[in-house]
Simulated scan of single mutants.
Amino acid sequence: MTLIEQLKDAMKVAMRAKEKARLGTIRLALAAIKQVEVDEAKTLSDDEITAVLTKMVKQRRDSIRQYEEAGRLDLAEAEAAEVVVLQEFLPQPMSDEELQAVVSQVIADSGASSMRDMGKVMGQLQSKVQGRADMAEVGKIVKAQLG
């Protein structure tokens, strides 16, 4: 079953169960996917849908941080609930050990030896860890290993 089919099925289940918050989040995700499809005039693959969902999770995490700094815990909790729903459709996150191993492997395979090679390494890592790791954390690990 494709990711878009999983989202549509989850939307139907949420409708039947009258889970308004979950239904709203799934509809937002489907709308974001549809928007990208219309903008790019193509049907998105599962990897591209994962990228859209990853971006949505990142946006919500940024919002949570800003709401907490502003003392709006009610809004932060709503965003956190959306993150939980969106993460159900993303691949399982990588453990720190797995992430370290993947970064080391890519650095070795690409022949990177200094910080000048960071862009090349990050480009290769993007496809390998998409949706499974925060790219900011990946960047820190790459810097540590190259520096």
Rank of each mutant, 00 (worst) to 15 (best):
A51H: 02
A51F: 05
A51P: 02
A51I: 01
V52Y: 00
V52T: 04
V52L: 08
V52N: 07
L53S: 02
L53K: 00
T54N: 12
K55G: 15
K55Q: 15
M56D: 10
M56Q: 08
M56H: 06
V57W: 07
K58G: 12
Q59F: 10
R60G: 08
R61E: 14
D62K: 08
D62A: 09
D62L: 11
S63I: 03
I64W: 03
I64S: 02
I64G: 00
Q66M: 10
Y67L: 05
E68Q: 14
E68F: 04
E68T: 14
E68H: 06
E69K: 15
E69W: 05
E69G: 12
A70E: 14
A70I: 05
A70T: 09
A70D: 13
G71N: 02
R72Q: 12
R72I: 05
L73Q: 13
D74N: 06
L75K: 12
L75M: 09
A76C: 02
E77C: 00
A78V: 10
A78K: 12
E79D: 15
E79F: 04
A80L: 11
A80N: 09
A81Q: 14
A81E: 15
E82H: 15
E82F: 03
V83G: 01
V83A: 07
V83K: 01
V83Q: 06
V83L: 08
V84Q: 11
V84F: 10
V84K: 15
V85I: 14
V85K: 09
V85A: 06
Q87C: 05
Q87I: 01
E88H: 09
F89S: 01
L90P: 00
L90Q: 02
L90V: 06
P91I: 09
P91M: 03
P91C: 07
Q92G: 10
P93C: 13
S95N: 11
D96F: 08
E97A: 13
E97R: 12
E98H: 07
E98S: 05
L99K: 05
L99Q: 10
L99C: 03
L99P: 07
L99F: 00
Q100N: 13
A101Y: 04
A101R: 09
A101M: 09
A101L: 09
A101P: 05
A101V: 04
V102C: 06
V103T: 07
V103D: 12
Q105T: 15
V106A: 03
I107V: 12
I107W: 08
A108C: 01
A108F: 08
